[in-house]
Design a protein around this nucleic acid. Structure first.
Lengths: 107, 107
DNA sequence: ACAAGTGTAACCCCTTAGGTTACATTGAAG
DNA sequence: CTTCAATGTAACCTAAGGGGTTACACTTGT
C-alpha cells in the first residue's frame, strides 16, 4: 500500500492552469458560465474550496471532461487532508486476515 | 462518454457482504473496533450513511485495504446521486474546445 | 421470558457548502 | 494620476449533514 507523502494536486489548480489561463477568461465570467457564485469558484481556484459532486458535473459540462476526473482529484486531496488532520484512525486494529477472503465470497 | 449507469454499489454493501457476514461479527462490535458509534456504522451498512475520508482510513486499517478503495466507492455513489438530484448542471454550456489543449486531441 | 443485536428517532454540537453584500487592493487602461 | 473591472475575502444567513448519546420498539436465539 502506497502512502502519499506529498500534497496532491488540488482541482482548483487544474482549473486555473489548464482552463482559466489558457482561455483568458475571468473568474467572474467562468463562474457565471458554471452557474455558481464568484465566491464559490474563487475559493476552489485558490484551493480553499471543495469540488462537490454537483460542481464536478458542472465542470465536466463546461470543459468536456468527466465528472469523475474532478472528483478523483478532490478525493485524493481530501484523503491527504484527513490523514494529517487526525491520528485517531491509526488506533484501529486490523481484523485477523486469516478469516478474510478479500472480495471473494466465503467458502 | 459513459452516461447513466445503474445505481453504484454502496460501500456499506461491501462492508456487509465481504466483511461483516464472513467475519460473523456484530455491527456493535465492528463499530467498536473502528472506533465509531454503532449509529454511524449502522447507517453506512444500511446505505444511509457516507464513508468519509476519516472512515475510509479506519476501514483500510481494519480490513487491510486501501482508503482509496472505500472512497472511490463512495465517490461513485455520490456522483450518481448528484446526477439525479438536480438537473441544473445540465444547463452549463461548454467552453469552445478549439482553444483547449487538455485531454483532447488538438485540432 | 430474557437478553442481545439492531434500526431509528430525538436531541445535541459543530462544520461546511453556497448565496449575497460589502470592502480594500490590484492592475490595466484612460 | 484617475477610473474601474476583477479579485480575495470577511461578515452574515440558510440548509444540510456527520457524529455522538440516549431511548425505545422490534426481532431472534437461548
Amino acid at each position: 500500500m502506497r502512502k502519499m507523502t506529498r500534497r496532491p494536486t488540488h482541482p482548483g489548480n487544474i482549473i486555473k492552469e489548464d482552463y482559466l489561463l489558457p482561455l483568458s477568461i475571468t473568474i467572474k465570467d467562468m463562474a457565471a458560465t458554471l452557474g455558481v457564485s464568484r465566491k464559490t469558484l474563487s475559493k476552489i481556484i485558490n484551493e480553499r474550496g471543495t469540488v462537490t459532486p454537483d460542481m464536478a458535473l458542472r465542470l465536466s459540462r463546461a470543459f468536456d471532461t468527466t465528472p469523475d476526473f474532478w472528483l478523483t482529484l478532490q478525493k485524493n486531496f481530501d484523503l491527504w487532508q484527513a490523514e494529517i488532520a487526525s491520528q485517531e484512525w491509526k488506533k484501529v486494529k486490523p481484523f485477523p486476515k486469516n478469516r478474510l477472503h478479500d472480495h471473494n465470497p466465503i467458502a
